[in-house]
């Protein structure tokens, strides 16, 4: 059994390194992205092996799934802009080959001491980390949930999560500040270039998958209180459903006009900040939840946050800002 586990881990490790190397070396952007997605899936397996199912879920949904979709959407737009990007990079690289090689070797040599330092540091660590699990388990009862990861994210260190929710909003604002693509037009370009010919298959897939994805998102949200799951995972699954609808050419932009899109995107951050302010006044500490209501409050926070996460990720994918009425 242990031998099997060792073999599996070894394969995972080699696969990871190989995929990373191939993705970095690939001159074709499309295959680099495909390799990156595969890398994310293997990474999710690694988290499973490290007994961190929460991170595995997040990695699979966000690291492999949505990041991959975002990269592909960006690539589609790049191609729309200036012809075939991939062939461009291939041609341009030829004259600079020697320079690029030199830079690669130099940076490799510079990175070697960093690598040795890291390895030395990690090997010098005690095998069993001190950690805080004892402390967390001791206070779990007062946190309102029984999943320690959710307890940390939404209660003990809810302030971190408050800021994280703003990171996502900031990403959306940042991307919107760079250009003003219309929500609907950008979807059309993605939809038309890649998927128009297969529309009947796609439509069936949408009818089957979207309800299932919504169920899964709701389940992940609910189950987060006592098992792996939670707002980020649920939000990204819901976002995947939105992305699928966008790809199939569903008129989401008619539903999500400019103002509605913005309101949904800020709903999570606003609820978080309001709750922070309210708890400061009512309980005397920022984001302090009374134990008897903590479970409900956390579920409320997570639901709104998941909605905002889903809408924000879908908006990032489409790139557009929504139509003004």
């Amino acid at each position: 059994m242990t031998l099997l586990a060792w073999g599996f881990d070894g394969l995972l490790l080699l696969g990871l390194l190989g995929l990373a190397w191939k993705a970095l070396n690939s001159t074709d952007l499309f295959s680099a992205i495909a390799l990156f997605i595969a890398f994310g899936l293997l990474m999710a397996l690694v988290w499973v092996r490290l007994e961190a199912p929460d991170i595995a879920l997040a990695e699979a949904a966000i690291g492999a799934g949505l990041s991959g979709a975002l990269l592909l959407a960006a690539l589609a737009r790049l191609r729309g802009m200036e012809g075939n990007v991939t062939s461009n990079t291939g041609v341009e690289e030829a004259p600079n080959n020697i320079d690029a090689r030199l830079v690669q070797w130099l940076s490799a040599i510079l990175l070697l001491p960093v690598l040795f330092g890291l390895v030395y540091g990690v090997l010098s660590l005690p095998g069993n980390a001190v950690g805080l699990s004892a402390e967390i388990n001791a206070n779990l009862a007062a946190s309102g949930v029984s999943n320690p990861v959710t307890a940390v994210l939404l209660n003990f260190r809810a302030y971190d999560t408050l800021l994280e929710v703003f990171v996502l909003l900031l990403a959306l604002i940042a991307i919107w500040s760079m250009g003003s693509i219309q929500f609907n037009r950008s979807i059309e370009t993605i939809g038309k270039t890649s998927l128009e010919t297969t529309s009947s298959v796609l439509d069936t897939l949408v009818y089957l998958l979207v309800p299932v994805l919504m169920m899964v998102a709701a389940y992940l949200l609910w189950v987060g209180a006592h098992a792996p799951g939670g707002a980020f995972q649920a939000g990204s699954v819901l976002a995947a459903a939105c992305v699928l609808l966008l790809l199939a050419g569903w008129p989401l932009h008619r539903l999500l006009t400019a103002m509605r899109l913005r309101l949904l995107a800020v709903a999570g951050p606003v609820v978080f900040v309001s709750m922070a302010a309210y708890s400061l006044i009512a309980e005397g500490a920022l984001l302090q939840f009374p134990p008897e209501h903590a479970g409900t409050l956390i579920l409320l926070l997570e639901t709104v946050a998941a909605l905002s996460i889903a809408v924000t990720l879908a908006a990032l994918f489409s790139g557009g800002q929504g139509q003004h009425e």
Partner: peptide
């Protein structure tokens, strides 16, 4: 000094 969420240091975050 403020213990966020009422949780003191190793568990919670301090301002």
């Amino acid at each position: 000094h403020h213990a966020i969420g009422g949780w003191e240091a190793p568990l919670g975050i301090g301002l």
